[in-house]
Structures are given as C-alpha cells and as structure tokens.
Design a protein around this nucleic acid. Sequence first.
DNA 1: CTGATGACGGCGC
DNA 2: TGCGCCGCCATCA
Length: 118
Amino acid sequence: MLTRMPKPAASMPSAAAAILAAIRAVPRGQVAGYGTIARRAGLPGRARLVARVLSGNTDRELPWHRILRSDGRIAFPPDSPAFAEQCLRLRADGVEVRNGRVRLPREDSLDAAVWSPR
DNA sequence: CTGATGACGGCGC
DNA sequence: TGCGCCGCCATCA
C-alpha cells in the first residue's frame, strides 16, 4: 500500500524537491509563508531550509515571489533589488502589496486545511 | 568542535 | 504595529 510515506530526512536531496514542488503548487494570486511551505513539503520546522533552497534556486518559472515571512512581510531588505522585483511579481499576480507586506492567508483556512493533512 | 550566518518563526513588551 | 530576544536548522570558516 502507499499508505506510508518515508520518514522525513531533511538532508536528502528530495527534501529540496519536495519544497520546490510545494512552492510550485502555490497558485497565482496566492501567497504562503516559509514555514507553511516547509510543512506542506513534509518538513515541519524547516522554514530556514526553504529559504536556503530558494536562495540557490535559478528557475525563473518558480513562483518564489509568493513565499513570504510568517508575518506577511517580504523577506528582503526594502532597499534591495530583489525586494522590488518580488513586489512587482506579486502585483503582477494581482496581489496587493502594502509597504512591503501582503495579507497572508490564515493557516486554518480551507485551502491550508487541504494542504496540511497532518 | 565552536562560533557565525541566513530569502525564518514565535513570544513578549 | 514595530522591535528585540531567543530558538531552530543547515552550512561554513
């Protein structure tokens, strides 16, 4: 049966793959926190790992701009070019960005519930 | 092995 | 809301 998933091993390369998959699964117009992505990837408590993976990512197709800090703030210094680009890409998605911050969906929303079976 | 670093998170004030 | 402190994880000097 496929009922059992392998135990989460953060050090294995597939961890990064799971993270990338979780990020790719965030639909346009929506956003998620680093910690949320980590959980969706089966790596609870590895928010910083998500950040690490993203920092090494080169795929322009990856919706990296939809990943924000838990408080809805963009994780870049407000004066950095990355910050500016993330702002643009978010708005291109139709997301409202106020002062480098967006309205992050509550974790207990339906969408989150579907994603995080626990 | 110890200490520093980073696209983090939660809590307290 | 803003800020600081501390905890956590993985990597690197």
